[in-house]
Simulated scan of single mutants.
Amino acid sequence: MKLAFSPCPNDTFVFHAWTHGLIDGAPQLDVTYADIDKTNYWAMDLEGPEVMKISFAALPYVIDDYRLIPCGGALGRGCGPLVLTSGGNGSPENLVGKTVAVPSDKSTAYMLFRLWTSQKIPDGVGKIKVMPFHEIMPAVKEGRVDAGLVIHEARFTYIDYGLDLLVDLGDWWEEDTGFPIPLGAIIAKRSLGKKQELTEWIQSSVQYAWDKPDASMDYVMEHAQEMSTEVAKNHIDLYVNEFTGELGEKGYAAVESLLGRAAKEGLIPAFDMKKLRD
Rank of each mutant, 00 (worst) to 15 (best):
69 I>P: 03
70 P>H: 07
70 P>F: 07
71 C>N: 05
71 C>Q: 03
72 G>H: 03
74 A>D: 07
76 G>N: 01
80 G>H: 02
80 G>R: 00
81 P>V: 05
81 P>D: 04
82 L>S: 05
83 V>P: 02
87 G>A: 06
90 G>V: 04
91 S>P: 04
92 P>V: 06
92 P>Q: 01
92 P>R: 01
94 N>K: 08
94 N>L: 12
95 L>N: 04
97 G>D: 08
99 T>I: 07
103 P>A: 01
103 P>M: 02
105 D>P: 01
105 D>Y: 14
105 D>K: 15
106 K>R: 08
106 K>S: 12
111 M>D: 00
113 F>P: 01
115 L>S: 04
116 W>S: 00
116 W>R: 02
117 T>P: 10
122 P>M: 07
123 D>F: 12
125 V>F: 15
126 G>S: 09
126 G>M: 02
128 I>G: 05
130 V>F: 13
134 H>G: 07
135 E>K: 01
136 I>C: 05
141 K>I: 01
142 E>G: 09
147 A>S: 10
149 L>D: 08
149 L>P: 03
150 V>S: 00
151 I>A: 11
156 F>D: 13
157 T>N: 09
158 Y>L: 05
162 G>D: 12
163 L>T: 11
164 D>L: 07
165 L>R: 09
165 L>I: 11
165 L>P: 12
169 L>W: 06
169 L>N: 09
169 L>E: 01
173 W>S: 07
174 E>I: 12
176 D>S: 15
176 D>L: 15
180 P>R: 03
181 I>Q: 05
184 G>L: 13
185 A>H: 09
187 I>H: 08
190 R>P: 11
190 R>C: 10
192 L>S: 13
195 K>W: 12
195 K>Q: 13
196 Q>V: 15
197 E>C: 08
198 L>G: 06
198 L>V: 14
201 W>F: 15
203 Q>N: 11
205 S>G: 09
207 Q>A: 12
211 D>A: 01
215 A>H: 02
216 S>K: 00
